[in-house]
């Protein structure tokens, strides 16, 4: 991949070039460490110069991420990162802009910004670290916590029905939607690679363990690999220890889990299907990660990119009307002169 920056020959960077001098302050054992390490080692491969890379975050444990990346960065306010990043990305299409967010930040206080960023298809890479809990505020339930979750703010169990972030993103017209796991370096890196090269908004949900307030929330999927339904483009969807289970599409379009031995044709995954129904149906296989759960790229389609369209309109306007002349603009319309 090329990544010339116009300021001289590209120096091959390594993971340590993306580390800052700031002490990383997450709890020992937090899943965020693994994601940070994966990102730092993946960045050099991307070939985008550090000065052209920007991480924008909101508030929450995950939101500290930019402080640890030796790139440009902004740790902003709760939920607003997609909006701020949209302004940056649409005014500076030359930049690679990443949003790091959490389940509370993206889906609760910032839900509106998230869905609109997704539908616009601004050139943003949105990484949602989902730990199904509010970590920074010390353990209240989040919009992805399971119903009945007992936390400090829900002593008798939470009443809220959770969001499935992947379903939400697909419903919000996202053009790239994926899910990965904090500690699965190989899988995570591959998903990040694909997200980085996607034109438009890429949304990646990362299962992230909060070992302090919600330890083991994803263990059913993380530790029991037979529960990982790995989506691979063009392949029949199979999972289980021996690949003995699979996914079949019902006549009504929804998906079901079947035993391969008994099933007829399995569903063949197609990331590029224009209609989002298939990706959505796959996302419904597991509303929360309590059993077999799809992992990988649900959807990767092309749609015009907002910032490119915006730049094109500016160019078209300059071409048809000539580059703006201030004197002319001030004199537009009815004028009269007094001698």
């Amino acid at each position: 991949m090329s990544g010339g920056n116009g300021h001289g020959p590209l120096v091959q960077l390594s993971a340590k070039d993306f580390k800052t001098d700031q002490e990383v302050r997450w709890c020992p054992g937090c899943g965020d460490y693994a994601i940070l390490a994966a990102m730092q080692s993946f960045m050099p491969e991307l070939g985008v110069p550090r000065e052209r890379t920007v991480f924008v975050s909101g508030i929450g444990c995950a939101a500290r991420f930019p402080y640890y990346m030796q790139t440009y960065g902004m740790h902003s306010i709760h939920g607003r990162a997609p909006a701020i990043a949209t302004g940056l990305a649409t005014s500076r299409p030359d930049l690679s802009v990443w949003v790091v967010t959490g389940d509370g930040d993206a889906l609760s206080i910032g839900g509106n910004h998230l869905i609109h960023a997704l539908r616009r298809n601004v050139n943003l890479k949105i990484l949602l670290f989902n730990n199904q809990i509010y970590g920074l505020t010390k353990g209240q339930y989040s919009p992805t916590s399971e119903v009945g979750k007992v936390t400090k703010s829900t002593p008798m169990g939470s009443l809220d029905y959770p969001f499935n972030p992947v379903s939400l993103a697909i419903g919000a017209e996202a053009t790239f939607v994926a899910r990965s796991i904090d500690t699965d370096r190989k899988h995570l890196t591959e998903v990040l690679r694909r997200a980085a090269t996607h034109r438009g908004t890429a949304f990646v949900e990362i299962y992230q363990n909060c070992n302090i307030f919600n330890d083991g929330a994803f263990d059913v999927v993380k530790e029991q690999k037979e529960n990982q339904i790995r989506l691979e483009h063009g392949q029949p969807i199979r999972f289980g220890a021996e690949g003995e289970r699979g996914v079949r599409q019902r006549a009504d379009g929804s998906c079901e889990l079947v035993d391969v031995a008994e099933a007829g044709a399995l569903l063949v995954h197609d990331e590029h299907q224009v209609h989002s129904s298939l990706a959505f149906a796959l996302s419904r296989l597991a509303h929360t990660p309590e059993g077999p759960t799809p992992i990988g790229i649900f959807r990767d389609v092309e749609r015009p990119v907002y910032d490119e369209l915006m730049a094109e309109q500016l160019e078209a306007a300059s071409e048809s009307r000539g580059k703006g002349d201030l004197g002319e603009l001030l004199h537009a319309g009815d004028t009269w002169t007094i001698a």
Partner: peptide, 29 residues
Amino acid sequence: YKHFGVRTFQAEDEIAAAGAALGASFGGA
């Protein structure tokens, strides 16, 4: 006034409108 290089962004809400403007400022607009 796009021929003056003016970018206008009709945001999803007032918060995003201000946020996007600040993001653009960070980028030098």
